[in-house]
Structure formats: structure tokens, C-alpha cells
């Protein structure tokens, strides 16, 4: 254990059962997972397999009903109170009464940064997601893709060491997506943030991750964890190399195995 970096997220025998009107729904069962500092972990699996729920448990937006989980060595609640993570939701969730720059400023106001610091971070993160020049626009004046980029800028401006992203690029076209994938990888490489990233796309998961967690539904569980052998620096055309394709094939096999379980 000594050569491993300290665990940012550590879950053992984690389970979560929703009590619904149609009876209990087991969204997560027996999840064992350790995420070390600086890792980029992708969660992939068919919809309904509990990816969002797992991320929400880490974020203390949902409480596990069995097992144990710690974030930065604390309970998720303590970690949230300490503002240990930034969260990017599936939808942009921008406030329509705030301009783009005021939306990015929202978490900065709450943590009480100075005006100058706020302005600097807004400028930097909006440039990062290619939204410079749209500071004064309202969210409803922008396209869906631009709104989602603004919400990513908001999470980046928050500047926590752990970034939880729930299908952040799901609604974007492929060109923007490639660009943001590169930007995200670059950011991760420079800042040594820990990133948990939910996605539907196998190439995206393989391109970004140091580890890929394959999940399957009913009950939601982890079926396979694949370590990436790709180097830390990854140009976009790494996606054509045999090494990349081999990892993608392993992920696909893992997904298929999870599926056949159903039928």
C-alpha cells in the first residue's frame, strides 16, 4: 500500500436501496472501489446501472444504505462541508437571472472570494471552455452546448481537488467534445486533480481515464475495473493506436458481459 497515493474516495460493500412506491429499488450493491489522488476514473455502463447514484453518494447528495464510504478520509458529509469537490451535473443548471459571468461567480461568492480573485477566475475558466466574449449573455441566449460549457467553467472556477462529472459532454457535438476532452486532460495533467467522470462513450472513457470502472444494472454493481496502459500525455490521434483499441475492446467485452447477465 505504501507506493499507492492516499485514497481520495474509498468505498467498501457500498449499497443503496431507494424506497419507492413500487417497492425498493436497489441502485447500488456491493461496490468496492478505491480512487487514489490524481487518478482519472471513468464510470461506464448502460443507463440505470447506478453511475449517477454512485457519484451522488460520493458528493453526499444521496446517503448509502449499507457499507462504508469515505472521501478524503472523512465522511462524504464532512467532505462536502469542507468543499472538497466540484460537481458538474448532466444538465447545465445555470440560473436564468444571472449572466454567464455571474453564474460562474456563484460558487466564488458563496465561498467569499474577493472581487479581484473572482474576476481573475471567471476570465481564466471562461477562456478555458472557449466562452470568452459571452460574459454578459444570459444562459437562455446561448445554445445548449455553450450552457454546458459555462457549467463546466463554473465547476472549474470552484477549483476543488476532486471533480465529479456526470456525463458532462453528453449533449455536445463531437467537435466541441474532442476539444473539451483535450482541455480536460490538459487541466488534469497540470493540476493533478482527481476526476470521476461518468460517460456513455467508450472512446471518451478510454481516451481520458487512468482507470475505467464498468458497471451493470439490476442491481447496480461494478463488474470490471480496467487499468489503462496509455501514457499520461495523450494526443487526440492516440485513439487510432492498437493499444487504445485493445483497451476499448476490453471495455466493450466488460459491458457485454454485464448485459448478458440480464437476459
Amino acid at each position: 500500500m505504501t507506493e499507492h497515493p492516499p485514497a481520495v474516495v474509498s468505498a467498501s460493500k457500498l449499497g443503496l436501496t431507494f424506497q419507492t412506491n413500487d417497492g425498493p429499488v436497489q441502485a447500488l450493491s456491493n461496490v468496492d472501489l478505491t480512487i487514489g489522488k490524481g487518478e482519472f476514473v471513468s464510470f461506464i455502463g448502460p443507463s440505470g446501472c447506478g453511475k449517477t447514484t454512485l457519484l451522488r453518494v460520493i458528493a453526499d447528495l444521496e446517503k448509502a444504505t449499507s457499507g462504508a464510504i469515505s472521501v478524503n478520509g472523512m465522511t462524504p458529509e464532512q467532505a462536502r462541508e469542507k468543499r472538497a469537490y466540484g460537481y458538474v451535473f448532466q444538465a447545465a443548471a445555470l440560473f436564468p437571472w444571472r449572466t454567464i459571468e455571474r453564474n460562474v461567480a456563484l460558487p466564488l461568492e458563496i465561498i467569499g472570494l474577493s472581487q479581484a480573485e473572482q474576476a481573475e477566475r471567471i476570465k481564466r475558466t471562461l477562456e478555458l471552455v472557449n466562452l470568452a466574449g459571452f460574459e454578459k449573455k444570459y444562459p437562455w441566449q446561448l445554445s445548449g452546448g455553450m450552457q454546458q460549457r459555462a457549467s463546466i467553467a463554473r465547476a472549474l472556477a470552484f477549483d476543488a481537488d476532486l471533480l465529479l462529472m456526470d456525463e458532462p459532454f453528453g449533449a455536445l457535438d463531437e467537435i466541441v467534445r474532442d476539444h473539451l476532452n483535450e482541455q480536460l486532460l490538459d487541466l488534469w495533467d497540470r493540476t493533478n486533480k482527481t476526476i470521476c467522470f461518468v460517460t456513455h462513450s467508450i472512446p471518451e472513457a478510454v481516451y481520458l481515464s487512468t482507470r475505467i470502472v464498468v458497471m451493470s444494472p439490476r442491481p447496480g454493481r461494478v463488474t470490471d475495473i480496467i487499468e489503462s496502459t496509455l501514457p499520461r500525455k495523450r494526443p487526440l490521434d492516440i485513439r487510432e493506436t492498437p493499444e487504445f483499441l485493445a483497451i476499448a475492446a476490453r471495455v466493450r467485452d466488460g459491458l457485454r458481459a454485464g448485459h448478458s447477465y440480464d437476459d
Binding site: A59, R80, E81, F89, W97, F158
Partner: peptide, 26 residues
């Protein structure tokens, strides 16, 4: 106000009053 917006404020560990002023009252 929407669930996602309120969850967002929770992730910032925003207290009752900031959430009221910045999200729920608008």
C-alpha cells in the same frame, strides 16, 4: 426552484441564507 439547482447549492456547502438569497428568492 429545481432539484438540480438546490443540489448544486448543496455541493457548495451553501447555508440556508445564501441559498435563499441567491437561488430560492429569485
Amino acid at each position: 426552484s429545481g432539484h438540480m439547482e438546490r443540489d448544486l447549492m448543496r455541493t457548495y456547502a451553501s447555508g440556508y441564507w445564501p441559498t435563499l438569497l441567491k437561488l430560492r428568492l429569485p
